[in-house]
Write a protein that binds this DNA or RNA. Sequence first.
RNA 1: GCCCAGAUGGCGGAACUGGUAGACGCGCUAGCUUCAGGAGCUAGUGUUCGCAAGGACGUGGGGGUUCAAAUCCCCCUCUGGGCACCA
Length: 827
Amino acid sequence: MKYNPAEIEKKWQKRWEKEGTYHIDVTDPVHKLYCLVMFIYPSASKLHIGHWFNYGPTDTWARFKKLTGKRVFQPMGYDAFGLPAENAAVKTGVHPHKSTQENIEDIRIQLKRIGAMYDWRYEIDTSVPEYYTWTQWLFLTLYKNGNAYRAKAPVNWCPSCQTVLANEQVIEGLCERCSSPVNKKDLVQWFFRITNYADELLEHLDNLDWPEKTKLMQRNWIGKSTGVEIQFTITDTGDALKVFTTRPDTLFGVTYMVLAPEHPLVSKITTPENKEHVARYIEQASKKTEIDRQAIDREKTGVPTGAYAVNPINDEKIPVWIADYVLYSYGTGAVMAVPGHDERDFEFAKQFDLPIRNVILEPGKNEHEPLEKAYIDEGTMIQSGAYTGMDSKTGIEKISDELEERGVGKRKINYRLRDWLVSRQRYWGAPIPIIHCDTCGEVPVPEDQLPVELPTDVDFKPTGESPLARSESYMNTTCPKCGSGAKRDPDTMDTFVCSSWYYLRFPSATLDTAPFDKETTNQWLPVDKYVGGAEHAVMHLLYARFITKALRDAGYIGFDEPFLSLVHQGTITNQGAKMSKSKGNVVNPNSFIDRYGSDVFRMYLMFMGPYEEGGDWSDAGIVGIDRFVRRVYHLIIENTSYLAGKFRDDRILFDTLESDARNLYRKCHQTIKKLSVDTERFQFNTAIAALMELLNEISRYTQSMHQRSDIEKTVFVHTIRNFIIMVAPFAPHLAEEVWEMCGQTESIFTSATWPRCDESALNIEEVTIVAQVNGRIRAKFVVSAGTDQNVLKEMTLSNENIKRYIDGKQIVKAIIVKDKLVNLVVR
RNA sequence: GCCCAGAUGGCGGAACUGGUAGACGCGCUAGCUUCAGGAGCUAGUGUUCGCAAGGACGUGGGGGUUCAAAUCCCCCUCUGGGCACCA
């Protein structure tokens, strides 16, 4: 019989579905394990290799855990709101609801072909009212707790997408979606107060089993810095000018001040003769795109305001400038410039011929040498009044103390993280459940009036104004408070809001009275293993952590973190480039599934290399996995007479085994050990290699099966049964089929348990000793393990080839490592 | 510019706390088989010198530590990822 994956895979997928093999009863949390892959974005109707690489291996891990006795909950859903669907709709005229639902239909069929353990009864779709009702509930919950607010702020605007963007969605000054240059605009927008949680988001990273790289990215994004807010005084007006610095030790080196062009004090302190220049500069700065502003190699620009400020440490009068290298959104929007010890200030000072003062002496340098560039590290304080001679580290503390005592400074912590801008001027998203009333102001839609349904009869062409604003029937409503006529909020939510809480929804996917059942949620969450792309390191993953904490504080859940353990699959590239439609290098998995089957394809993806590294796509080796799978299939067909027969006995005593039965048994248990460790750690490539090694050994063993003794046949059956169970997570359909051939009637995933390693069989009995002379290998010999060091030395000395290298020489030293090597050092 | 990760045969990749470099697979070579299919089996396969025994060289480049380095330290090159005037 020939291995026919198409037939076998169909058969088992049908049977799993019919029997509900992977159904999980969420009311019973005993041995629960919540394994989650990032749900799918259904913008295109085809699964690509990246999806398979995400879902296949994760399913392997989940199946492994199931076999070890866990009750694995593995759901799947659709992140269905979002710009790509809407942009496609603008182009094709097909309504995004229609295209999204059609895509989901296609995608579901393809997902099922993977043959993963998804419990489809818990499927979710973020774009349907059954889901977004609760996205709106989430918004209102944050609103009630002061974590959602509306404010006017300079925000990122994508002129192509015609909407605002969160900071996280601006990549190098370009829109994350469409790569257009992003502008700043002053707009009233909705924000989530993620900065309230900045410190906790930073601190809790330490407890998470996440890739260090990802934690580091989040730490950098949060960007905590400790310093002092120092108050300078504007001489003419008496206004306080506050600046934040991490280097109060350089305070004696301040030679000018700089305000961000947007700083409110600018208009007040600018002297009449400078008004025109300043106004022109502000005008120009506001027109720049983020790219222009951020280009680091660009020359610094700025203009003096004509005002002066007084340095509180030495009463020195210094000029105040405005320049766009100072960001209004960070700290106080103003800086004290220390050109001697800050690269940016140095560059600016050079540009405008401002004085540069050396106040931190670099170790080994002469105080009177002029600075060639800013010295930004620690050193000895000089020209610093009473602080001269102090090391800068101490100086930071001492000067901070003095400023605090005198009431002109305060220690402060600043974060780079900004509040999350969640409103969007687009159509295909969850409407913001707020009503604007002329008398009552902002009024939240009462919960019992949710959902605020997204109307379908809207012209969603992007114009920069929210499409919903054009729908009178949508916009006009009554105020829930006073009953008079009022307007709905015309914006929709960032799709990252939908995905910031979906993991909470899964176990309660069908619940229609609440976003999630409190008890079930607290039992099944946090997610035990979360798998998805590293591109979400700071967006989705940070948002989800924040939402979890906010809901905890609102009293809905009893845990701090949503994802205890995180794995990122690597990226599969093609010819070195990320696969994308525009590059035309997308590889369609379907041709491989048709030819080799799902088992072979997913296993090949796992065998290609380390899971977390990904790699460049090549189908060159897939035949290797195909051969492996067929060899397994044929090996079992040829031996069913033993497998289904009387040789089943798991109580084999290793000590009674001899020769190759002993070796096979040992190999079997070595493999069990390796598979258990490697599969747990997502090291699928080496796990599969170990399975191949075991198969090679079994094949050799079976060549003389007919003349083997009963005990030898028993060892064979024992090994092959364990082998099938170990193959099962990697090639589930194949495993079911051969398991059935062995006379089993129930699914391997419900009837088998992951084998336990017989430690007594692992003792290595023979070892190869490497004999070296001066560190170079000159001979090898096999001895039994534990052979005495002196014996090893004697054997080395008497070795013919070794003799050639030591004759006539003096042995200075002999290094002998038990069971490993002998190294003779001769002169 | 700064931070992080990496570089191993013709190819994908293995290698525990420094102790046989190249597991496993692809490819290639030879042989055997077959109801000739994109099949199976056996042996070989880092480079190089040699009939062989056995040498020399070898983990991006250069230095170092050590009896011993893919592994530890320093410098450099390249590749991938992140941040990008955050004071």
